[in-house]
């Protein structure tokens, strides 16, 4: 078992006075690949934002590589769920990706090395040919790939992905999970997704989030866990997951 990269104890989060997360406890070890599923509004995005220091917890301890979030968040790469950009903003794909190097940049401008890292990140998501394209001229799926490239260009130790395959086509999605598996050799991954079948066959461990985190050190997804989080399996059908992926009783999904 590797060393602990994320430690969370007794985490409570309130947004506008409403408790969104309560009593979350989690330890993630180096080179883990954690999948998080859960219903809409379950607090998955909020949870990632806490790790990134964008949301301050009401209570509890959050440590990244043994330090408070503020100190170590430069070790995190983040692919947000929604890309809310001003389409008229004059900026190229390459400029967006190289901006990931801001925390590492030495001089006033980015170095050739920074541009090389940005190019190889674009290469990995098959967007290198569009590097000079304006951000506002991309399709939704292409934009999402650029966001993945931007997160990779951070060269993070831990990569947080919030539904990165929500608007990419299925061909890219399949390749994308392979890419994640490859990246997992270099870094720790946390993936939020509604795509339970894909997640459960790629991640090493699986957790459900609905106000709190239901977590077991395995990727065994039992019915009890699902029902605790989703409350009702109908939700799963609404998410496009056929009922039969669920084991009849306490079985195992995935391989």
């Amino acid at each position: 078992m590797g060393k602990k990269v994320i430690e969370i104890e007794n985490l409570f989060v309130e947004l506008d006075g409403i408790t969104v997360l309560e009593n979350v406890n989690l330890t993630v070890n180096e080179y883990d690949f954690l999948g998080i599923i859960g219903p809409n509004g379950g607090g998955k995005t909020t949870f990632l934002r806490v790790l990134l220091g964008l949301v301050k917890p009401a209570r509890g301890k959050v440590r990244i590589m043994g330090n408070p979030v503020e100190k170590n968040r430069h070790l995190l790469g983040y692919v947000p769920q929604y890309a809310v950009f001003d389409r008229s903003f004059p900026i190229s794909v390459e400029e967006v990706v190289v901006s990931a190097r801001l925390a590492r940049k030495q001089g006033i401008r980015f170095s050739n090395e920074d541009y090389r890292i940005a190019a190889s990140a674009l290469e990995r998501v098959e967007m290198l040919p569009l590097r000079s394209r304006q951000m506002g001229e991309l399709s939704g799926g292409e934009r999402q790939r650029v966001l993945v490239a931007r997160a990779l260009a951070v060269q993070p130790r831990i990569l947080l992905l919030d539904e990165p395959t929500a608007s990419v086509d299925s061909r890219f999605a399949a390749g994308f999970y392979e890419l994640l598996r490859e990246l997992n050799r270099e870094m720790t991954l946390i993936l939020v997704s509604h795509d339970i079948s894909a997640v459960s066959s790629y991640v090493k461990t699986l957790a459900c989030m609905n106000r709190t985190l239901y977590y077991e050190h395995s990727r065994e997804l039992n019915r009890e866990m699902i029902e605790n989080t989703y409350n009702c399996p109908v939700d799963l059908i609404a998410h496009g997951i056929p009922h039969r992926v669920l084991p009849p009783h306490d079985g195992v999904v995935g391989s």
């Binding site: 964008l54 968040r73 983040y78 947000p80 967006v96 901006s99 801001l102 931007r150």
Partner: peptide, 10 residues
């Protein structure tokens, strides 16, 4: 361009 990402970048 992206205040949130800039913040995450430190």
């Amino acid at each position: 361009f992206d205040e949130e990402f800039a913040r995450v970048s430190g």
